[in-house]
């Protein structure tokens, strides 16, 4: 299987504030570059408000109102691509809050139909793909799942369903913005295991946004650290944990260690977080 690449170069996002002399731009993300390969997990870490989520939104041009992308280009396998063209085709996404990411009036099946329409799969082929995707995320045993409404499912199940939808799109890359933040610890560990398995089995390129270094240690091959809208440090996960060179990275590590009381020389594992 050939390795596919997704590169975002020099992403910049700004908002603006009104001053007496008119609008004044306020940069939120500055010159952020991300490099993603299939079969590899890149973790984007940073404190709250460091611009992680905005950088991901800029990648797909789904920035919230009041912000705009002012720079950067996206290269898919080396060819420049419109961000909107990536959505659902080259890049699938898993959002933070599964509870609100599903339309309460639509069943899982309805949501799958939407993804299948983008992927161009219809009828029997679509249903087969759906069964396969649900089985891959561990929801294949219960035949009722496709007909369930979001409120009939637990947060963990919904997050699995969202990952199944992402698989259904057949996109080679997956962006997961804090996929475990809204889940309890046991569900967190399971979702992370699932993501790790899927990356290995299907050779997905996973960009995982998190502020939890335990997640990073467990999953990531490479890490990009963001602080104040810039990517301050990039490197292999091991070397970043062993030799953090930037103050922002050191602060994140120190905070994590203070919280979980693990030895500074070894990367903390998610299992440490389990009660």
């Amino acid at each position: 299987m050939t390795v596919r690449t997704l590169r975002a170069g020099g992403l910049a996002v700004e908002t603006w504030r009104a001053t007496r002399r008119g609008r004044e731009p306020v940069p939120l993300v500055r010159d952020a570059s991300l490099d993603l390969r299939t079969g590899e997990v890149l973790a984007l870490v940073g404190a709250s408000g460091s611009g992680k989520s905005l950088a991901c939104a800029a990648l797909l041009d789904t920035l919230p109102p009041g912000t705009r992308r002012t720079g950067g280009r996206i290269l898919l396998d080396g060819a420049e691509t419109e961000p909107a063209a990536l959505r659902g085709r080259a890049v699938a996404s898993v959002l933070q809050a599964p509870r609100t990411a599903f339309n309460p009036l639509r069943t899982i099946d309805d949501h799958a139909g939407e993804t299948l329409a983008v992927a161009g799969l219809r009828g029997g082929a679509g249903r087969a793909a759906m069964r396969e995707a649900l089985a891959a995320v561990g929801l294949g045993d219960d035949p009722r799942v496709p007909g369930l409404y979001p409120f009939q499912m637990s947060g963990g199940m919904l997050q699995r369903a969202m990952i199944a939808l992402a698989l259904l799109s057949r996109a080679p890359f997956l962006v997961a913005d804090e996929p475990t933040t809204d889940l309890d610890l046991v569900a967190q560990a399971r979702i992370l295991d699932l993501l790790a398995d899927l990356v290995r089995e299907r050779s997905l390129g996973l960009l995982i946004v998190t502020h939890d270094l335990g997640v990073v240690a467990r999953l990531a091959d490479r890490v990009a650290v963001m602080a104040e809208g810039r990517i301050v440090e990039t490197g292999a996960a091991k070397s970043i944990f062993a030799r953090p060179s930037e103050p922002a990275t050191q602060a994140l590590l120190a905070a994590h260690q203070a919280l979980h009381e693990v030895a500074p020389d070894g990367p903390p594992a998610v299992t440490d977080l389990l009660p």
């Binding site: 959505r87 959002l95 990411a101 309805d110 939407e114």
Partner: peptide, 20 residues
């Protein structure tokens, strides 16, 4: 709503988002 954002991110066309 988040699910509209989710549909956009999933690549659904605007008309489909409106109808669905």
């Amino acid at each position: 709503r988040d699910y509209v954002l989710a549909a956009r991110i999933a690549g659904a066309p605007r008309l489909a988002i409106f109808v669905e």
